[in-house]
């Protein structure tokens, strides 16, 4: 007799998606080997999305993840997906390219517990309605206690006009909530850096998307 497979039907025509589970406290040993203190393989998917010769404005993006008690989440793992400087997503991930649209980072177990990415400022991407979306980085957040990853967008505070016209950002009714999606520019030692703290719950809770 055929054994019941682990997949489950949704209807006669479709299957159910495999259910999500938390990535747990030790996600680093699987997806962020350096953060676990483990030896890395020859090629790892990590936080340097650019080489020096990549075209575009080179930036750093940093931030913390904060829980509903106001405490730092030290075991969060994040994934970034963004367009290149011309507004195109580069699906082909290849560490020999000057720029990759995908990156990974994690908060740390040390004092400041910041995640960081080295990248370029993305260009504007066309919305299906033909308008331009303001430059943004898509972020997914995984952590112990997070049962299914949270999805947000990081926008830039020096893109005032583009942000105002963005068909996604302008759909947010609450101005206070819209601000949770906007990273703040700071310049330190010749580095252009944007700060984006992610609040999982409570006052200043970041907007998370369903798509």
């Amino acid at each position: 007799m055929m054994k019941q497979p682990n997949t489950q039907p949704m209807s006669e025509l479709m299957l159910r998606e495999t259910a999500s589970q938390t990535a747990g406290p030790y996600v680093h040993i699987g997806l962020a080997l350096a953060a676990a203190g483990n030896p890395e393989r020859d090629e790892e998917i990590w936080s340097e999305m650019v080489k020096p010769d990549a075209s575009g404005e080179h930036i750093e993006v940093v931030g913390t993840v904060i829980d509903g008690n106001g405490d730092l989440v030290r075991d969060a793992f994040l994934e970034a997906w963004q367009a290149d400087a011309e507004g195109n997503y580069q699906s082909d991930y290849d560490l020999r390219k000057p720029f990759n649209s995908f990156g990974r980072t994690a908060t740390t177990f040390d004092h400041g517990s910041e995640w960081s990415l080295k990248t370029i400022k993305p260009g504007a991407v066309v919305h299906p309605n033909g308008k331009l979306m303001a430059p943004h980085i898509n972020l997914a957040i995984f952590a112990r206690g997070v049962n299914i990853h949270l999805q947000t967008r990081l926008y830039f505070d020096d893109e005032v006009e583009a942000n105002r016209e963005c068909p996604v950002l302008s759909r947010v009714e609450s101005d206070n909530r819209r601000q949770t999606l906007i990273a703040k520019r700071e310049e330190a030692g010749g580095v252009i850096r944007y700060r984006f703290d992610i609040r999982l719950q409570g006052p200043g809770e970041t907007i998370f998307f369903d798509f």
Binding site: G68, D71, R144, N147, E205, T206, F208, F209, D210
Partner: peptide, 14 residues
């Protein structure tokens, strides 16, 4: 652990 790490606001649907 999910208690303090779960958003209270609705997800924004795209």
């Amino acid at each position: 652990t999910s208690i303090a790490r779960s958003p209270q606001q609705a997800l924004m649907s795209m």
